[in-house]
Simulated scan of single mutants.
Amino acid sequence: GAQARLLPEQRQLAEAMVDDIAQAALRTRLVAELEQAHVSNETERLRSALLSSVSHDLRSPLAAMIGSADSLASYGAAMDTSDRRALLDTILVEGERLDRYIQNLLDMTRLGHEGLKINRDWIGVDELIGSAARRLQRYQPKVRLELDIPATLAPIWVHPALVEQAVFNVMENAAKFSPPEAAVRVQARELDGQLRIDVIDAGPGIPDDERARIFDMFYSVERGDRGRHGTGLGLTICQGMIGAHGGSVQALPGRDGRGTLIRITLPLLKPASHDEPDPD
Protein backbone atom coordinates (compact mmCIF):
# COMPACT_ATOMS: atom_id res chain seq x y z
CA GLY A 1 0.00 0.00 0.00
CA ALA A 2 2.78 2.44 0.85
CA GLN A 3 4.14 2.02 -2.64
CA ALA A 4 0.80 2.87 -4.26
CA ARG A 5 0.48 6.05 -2.18
CA LEU A 6 3.91 7.25 -3.39
CA LEU A 7 3.17 6.67 -7.05
CA PRO A 8 1.40 10.00 -7.78
CA GLU A 9 4.25 11.87 -6.04
CA GLN A 10 6.83 9.86 -7.94
CA ARG A 11 4.98 10.53 -11.15
CA GLN A 12 4.87 14.21 -10.31
CA LEU A 13 8.62 14.17 -9.60
CA ALA A 14 9.36 12.28 -12.80
CA GLU A 15 7.20 14.67 -14.82
CA ALA A 16 8.91 17.65 -13.21
CA MET A 17 12.31 16.13 -14.03
CA VAL A 18 11.32 15.42 -17.65
CA ASP A 19 9.99 18.95 -17.87
CA ASP A 20 13.26 20.33 -16.49
CA ILE A 21 15.28 18.25 -18.93
CA ALA A 22 13.10 19.41 -21.85
CA GLN A 23 13.49 23.04 -20.74
CA ALA A 24 17.25 22.61 -20.42
CA ALA A 25 17.45 20.99 -23.87
CA LEU A 26 15.38 23.82 -25.34
CA ARG A 27 17.57 26.43 -23.65
CA THR A 28 20.70 24.71 -24.94
CA ARG A 29 19.28 24.67 -28.46
CA LEU A 30 18.24 28.32 -28.21
CA VAL A 31 21.69 29.29 -26.96
CA ALA A 32 23.30 27.34 -29.83
CA GLU A 33 20.96 28.96 -32.36
CA LEU A 34 21.57 32.42 -30.91
CA GLU A 35 25.29 31.78 -30.98
CA GLN A 36 25.04 30.67 -34.61
CA ALA A 37 22.93 33.72 -35.47
CA HIS A 38 25.46 35.92 -33.68
CA VAL A 39 28.34 34.38 -35.65
CA SER A 40 26.56 34.71 -38.99
CA ASN A 41 25.52 38.27 -38.06
CA GLU A 42 29.11 39.15 -37.26
CA THR A 43 30.29 37.47 -40.47
CA GLU A 44 27.65 39.36 -42.44
CA ARG A 45 28.64 42.66 -40.83
CA LEU A 46 32.26 41.83 -41.51
CA ARG A 47 31.52 41.04 -45.14
CA SER A 48 29.65 44.29 -45.82
CA ALA A 49 32.27 46.32 -43.99
CA LEU A 50 35.02 44.63 -45.99
CA LEU A 51 33.22 45.36 -49.24
CA SER A 52 32.75 49.04 -48.41
CA SER A 53 36.42 49.35 -47.47
CA VAL A 54 37.61 47.50 -50.55
CA SER A 55 36.04 50.03 -52.89
CA HIS A 56 38.26 52.83 -51.60
CA ASP A 57 41.34 51.28 -50.09
CA LEU A 58 42.06 48.84 -52.88
CA ARG A 59 41.14 51.14 -55.72
CA SER A 60 43.33 54.11 -54.81
CA PRO A 61 46.65 52.19 -54.96
CA LEU A 62 45.41 50.46 -58.14
CA ALA A 63 44.59 53.82 -59.75
CA ALA A 64 48.08 55.13 -58.89
CA MET A 65 49.72 51.99 -60.33
CA ILE A 66 47.67 52.07 -63.53
CA GLY A 67 48.32 55.81 -63.98
CA SER A 68 52.08 55.41 -63.49
CA ALA A 69 52.32 52.38 -65.80
CA ASP A 70 50.26 54.22 -68.43
CA SER A 71 52.57 57.27 -68.25
CA LEU A 72 55.63 55.02 -68.60
CA ALA A 73 54.12 53.18 -71.57
CA SER A 74 53.06 56.38 -73.36
CA TYR A 75 55.88 58.82 -72.53
CA GLY A 76 58.65 56.69 -71.02
CA ALA A 77 60.99 57.18 -73.98
CA ALA A 78 60.80 60.97 -73.67
CA MET A 79 61.38 61.02 -69.88
CA ASP A 80 64.66 61.39 -68.07
CA THR A 81 65.89 58.63 -65.73
CA SER A 82 64.71 60.30 -62.50
CA ASP A 83 61.12 60.73 -63.77
CA ARG A 84 61.00 57.10 -64.91
CA ARG A 85 62.47 56.04 -61.56
CA ALA A 86 59.79 58.04 -59.68
CA LEU A 87 56.98 56.34 -61.63
CA LEU A 88 58.49 52.90 -61.05
CA ASP A 89 58.81 53.70 -57.33
CA THR A 90 55.13 54.67 -57.23
CA ILE A 91 54.17 51.34 -58.84
CA LEU A 92 56.33 49.43 -56.35
CA VAL A 93 55.19 51.28 -53.20
CA GLU A 94 51.51 51.24 -54.17
CA GLY A 95 51.79 47.56 -55.16
CA GLU A 96 53.18 46.75 -51.70
CA ARG A 97 50.41 48.80 -50.10
CA LEU A 98 47.82 46.88 -52.10
CA ASP A 99 49.46 43.62 -51.08
CA ARG A 100 49.25 44.68 -47.40
CA TYR A 101 45.56 45.58 -47.66
CA ILE A 102 44.74 42.28 -49.32
CA GLN A 103 46.68 40.39 -46.65
CA ASN A 104 44.80 42.32 -43.95
CA LEU A 105 41.46 41.53 -45.57
CA LEU A 106 42.31 37.84 -45.87
CA ASP A 107 43.46 37.70 -42.25
CA MET A 108 40.31 39.46 -41.13
CA THR A 109 37.92 37.19 -43.03
CA ARG A 110 39.75 34.15 -41.63
CA LEU A 111 39.40 35.58 -38.12
CA GLY A 112 35.72 36.28 -38.77
CA HIS A 113 34.95 32.66 -39.63
CA GLU A 114 35.86 29.64 -37.56
CA GLY A 115 38.71 31.37 -35.75
CA LEU A 116 42.29 30.50 -36.56
CA LYS A 117 44.17 27.28 -36.31
CA ILE A 118 47.28 28.32 -34.44
CA ASN A 119 50.34 26.54 -35.80
CA ARG A 120 52.78 27.40 -33.05
CA ASP A 121 56.55 27.36 -33.14
CA TRP A 122 59.41 28.72 -31.04
CA ILE A 123 60.72 32.17 -31.99
CA GLY A 124 62.99 34.69 -30.27
CA VAL A 125 61.28 37.92 -29.18
CA ASP A 126 64.15 39.95 -30.68
CA GLU A 127 63.78 38.09 -33.99
CA LEU A 128 60.01 38.65 -34.03
CA ILE A 129 60.13 42.39 -33.24
CA GLY A 130 63.27 42.88 -35.35
CA SER A 131 61.53 41.37 -38.37
CA ALA A 132 58.48 43.65 -37.95
CA ALA A 133 60.81 46.66 -37.52
CA ARG A 134 62.77 45.87 -40.72
CA ARG A 135 59.55 45.47 -42.69
CA LEU A 136 58.25 48.82 -41.42
CA GLN A 137 61.53 50.53 -42.33
CA ARG A 138 61.28 49.15 -45.88
CA TYR A 139 57.81 50.72 -46.26
CA GLN A 140 58.68 53.91 -44.37
CA PRO A 141 62.42 54.60 -44.60
CA LYS A 142 62.08 57.81 -42.53
CA VAL A 143 60.51 56.12 -39.50
CA ARG A 144 62.63 56.19 -36.31
CA LEU A 145 62.38 53.17 -34.03
CA GLU A 146 63.89 52.59 -30.58
CA LEU A 147 63.85 48.91 -29.65
CA ASP A 148 64.29 47.90 -26.03
CA ILE A 149 64.39 44.09 -25.99
CA PRO A 150 66.44 42.51 -23.16
CA ALA A 151 68.75 39.72 -24.38
CA THR A 152 67.56 37.64 -21.40
CA LEU A 153 64.04 37.13 -22.85
CA ALA A 154 63.38 33.46 -23.60
CA PRO A 155 61.94 32.36 -26.97
CA ILE A 156 58.14 32.20 -27.11
CA TRP A 157 55.80 29.46 -28.39
CA VAL A 158 53.42 31.25 -30.81
CA HIS A 159 52.32 31.38 -34.44
CA PRO A 160 55.32 33.53 -35.54
CA ALA A 161 53.78 35.07 -38.68
CA LEU A 162 50.57 36.10 -36.88
CA VAL A 163 52.29 37.70 -33.90
CA GLU A 164 54.83 39.41 -36.17
CA GLN A 165 51.96 40.83 -38.26
CA ALA A 166 50.18 42.04 -35.12
CA VAL A 167 53.34 43.78 -33.85
CA PHE A 168 53.89 45.24 -37.34
CA ASN A 169 50.30 46.61 -37.45
CA VAL A 170 50.70 48.31 -34.07
CA MET A 171 54.12 49.76 -34.98
CA GLU A 172 52.84 50.98 -38.36
CA ASN A 173 49.90 52.63 -36.61
CA ALA A 174 52.22 54.33 -34.10
CA ALA A 175 54.55 55.53 -36.89
CA LYS A 176 51.58 57.02 -38.74
CA PHE A 177 50.76 59.33 -35.83
CA SER A 178 54.25 60.15 -34.57
CA PRO A 179 55.79 63.52 -35.37
CA PRO A 180 58.55 63.01 -37.98
CA GLU A 181 61.39 63.72 -35.52
CA ALA A 182 60.02 61.54 -32.68
CA ALA A 183 60.96 57.88 -32.39
CA VAL A 184 58.45 55.09 -31.84
CA ARG A 185 59.57 53.06 -28.81
CA VAL A 186 59.06 49.31 -28.65
CA GLN A 187 59.70 47.73 -25.27
CA ALA A 188 59.45 44.01 -24.46
CA ARG A 189 59.32 42.63 -20.91
CA GLU A 190 58.47 39.33 -19.24
CA LEU A 191 56.14 39.76 -16.26
CA ASP A 192 54.19 37.15 -14.26
CA GLY A 193 54.43 34.44 -16.91
CA GLN A 194 53.44 36.82 -19.70
CA LEU A 195 55.26 38.65 -22.44
CA ARG A 196 54.38 42.34 -22.62
CA ILE A 197 55.20 44.36 -25.74
CA ASP A 198 54.58 48.11 -25.38
CA VAL A 199 54.58 50.29 -28.51
CA ILE A 200 54.76 53.96 -27.51
CA ASP A 201 54.26 56.90 -29.87
CA ALA A 202 54.61 60.62 -29.23
CA GLY A 203 51.62 61.54 -31.39
CA PRO A 204 48.63 63.67 -30.37
CA GLY A 205 47.17 60.83 -28.26
CA ILE A 206 43.64 59.48 -28.26
CA PRO A 207 40.75 61.03 -26.31
CA ASP A 208 39.68 58.81 -23.37
CA ASP A 209 36.26 58.05 -24.83
CA GLU A 210 37.74 56.93 -28.17
CA ARG A 211 40.41 54.66 -26.74
CA ALA A 212 38.28 51.48 -26.73
CA ARG A 213 36.80 52.28 -30.12
CA ILE A 214 40.10 52.22 -31.99
CA PHE A 215 39.75 48.43 -32.04
CA ASP A 216 36.38 48.57 -33.82
CA MET A 217 36.55 47.42 -37.38
CA PHE A 218 37.13 50.21 -39.91
CA TYR A 219 37.47 52.81 -37.19
CA SER A 220 40.16 55.34 -38.11
CA VAL A 221 40.86 57.95 -35.48
CA GLU A 222 41.32 61.40 -36.96
CA ARG A 223 44.31 62.68 -35.07
CA GLY A 224 46.27 65.84 -35.68
CA ASP A 225 46.23 67.12 -39.26
CA ARG A 226 46.81 63.74 -40.87
CA GLY A 227 43.10 63.00 -41.45
CA ARG A 228 42.03 59.44 -42.12
CA HIS A 229 44.50 56.74 -43.08
CA GLY A 230 43.94 53.32 -44.53
CA THR A 231 41.20 50.86 -43.70
CA GLY A 232 41.34 51.12 -39.93
CA LEU A 233 41.59 47.32 -40.05
CA GLY A 234 45.10 47.04 -38.64
CA LEU A 235 44.26 47.15 -34.92
CA THR A 236 41.12 45.00 -35.28
CA ILE A 237 43.19 42.30 -36.95
CA CYS A 238 45.88 42.73 -34.34
CA GLN A 239 43.35 42.12 -31.57
CA GLY A 240 42.03 39.04 -33.36
CA MET A 241 45.51 37.62 -33.87
CA ILE A 242 46.66 38.19 -30.30
CA GLY A 243 43.25 37.11 -28.97
CA ALA A 244 43.62 33.82 -30.87
CA HIS A 245 46.75 33.26 -28.74
CA GLY A 246 44.81 33.92 -25.52
CA GLY A 247 46.41 37.38 -25.20
CA SER A 248 45.09 40.94 -25.20
CA VAL A 249 45.71 44.33 -26.82
CA GLN A 250 44.97 47.56 -24.95
CA ALA A 251 45.32 51.24 -25.74
CA LEU A 252 46.64 53.31 -22.83
CA PRO A 253 47.74 56.94 -22.47
CA GLY A 254 51.40 57.48 -23.41
CA ARG A 255 54.14 58.25 -20.91
CA ASP A 256 54.00 61.72 -19.30
CA GLY A 257 50.55 62.28 -20.76
CA ARG A 258 51.86 62.43 -24.34
CA GLY A 259 50.99 60.11 -27.20
CA THR A 260 49.61 56.59 -26.97
CA LEU A 261 50.85 53.28 -25.59
CA ILE A 262 49.50 50.13 -27.23
CA ARG A 263 50.16 47.12 -25.04
CA ILE A 264 50.24 43.58 -26.43
CA THR A 265 50.14 40.90 -23.72
CA LEU A 266 50.79 37.24 -24.56
CA PRO A 267 50.59 34.32 -22.12
CA LEU A 268 53.86 32.35 -22.21
CA LEU A 269 52.57 28.93 -23.14
CA LYS A 270 54.66 25.78 -23.47
CA PRO A 271 53.88 22.94 -25.85
CA ALA A 272 52.52 19.68 -24.48
CA SER A 273 55.51 17.32 -24.35
CA HIS A 274 54.41 15.44 -27.46
CA ASP A 275 53.96 18.64 -29.51
CA GLU A 276 57.42 19.97 -30.01
CA PRO A 277 60.92 19.83 -28.55
CA ASP A 278 62.20 22.72 -26.42
CA PRO A 279 64.02 25.55 -28.27
CA ASP A 280 67.61 24.46 -27.65
Rank of each mutant, 00 (worst) to 15 (best):
P279W: 07
E172H: 13
D121S: 15
A63G: 08
D19S: 11
E222R: 08
S82K: 01
P279Q: 05
D216M: 09
G240M: 10
L34H: 11
E114A: 07
S52V: 02
H56Y: 08
H56K: 07
R196A: 00
I123Y: 13
P277A: 10
R110D: 13
R223A: 15
A49D: 14
A182I: 00
M79K: 01
L106D: 08
P180S: 12
Q239G: 12
Q12W: 13
I156R: 01
S52E: 06
D80Q: 10
D275Y: 05
G243L: 04
A183N: 02
L30Q: 15
T236R: 05
M79I: 00
A4G: 06
G193F: 08
E190P: 04
G76A: 05
S55D: 15
L7R: 13
K176M: 14
L88V: 12
D280M: 14
R135S: 13
G1M: 07
P141T: 02
L162K: 03
P204F: 06
I66M: 05
S55K: 12
V184D: 09
L128I: 03
G246T: 00
S131Y: 07
R138I: 14
P160M: 09
R263Y: 07
S55E: 14
S248W: 03
I149Q: 11
T265Y: 01
L98R: 02
E181R: 08
S248C: 04
D208A: 15
L268E: 00
H38F: 01
L58V: 02
M241K: 12
T231E: 07
E276N: 10
A2R: 14
S131A: 13
F218E: 06
S220K: 10
R189P: 00
L34S: 09
A174Y: 11
L252I: 04
L195F: 05
V158L: 01
I156W: 01
M108Q: 10
W157K: 10
E181S: 12
L7S: 05
S68C: 06
D20Q: 13
L128Q: 04
D192M: 02
G240H: 06
F215G: 01
I262A: 07
A4H: 11
Y139D: 12
R223L: 15
I206K: 01
M241T: 09
L13E: 12
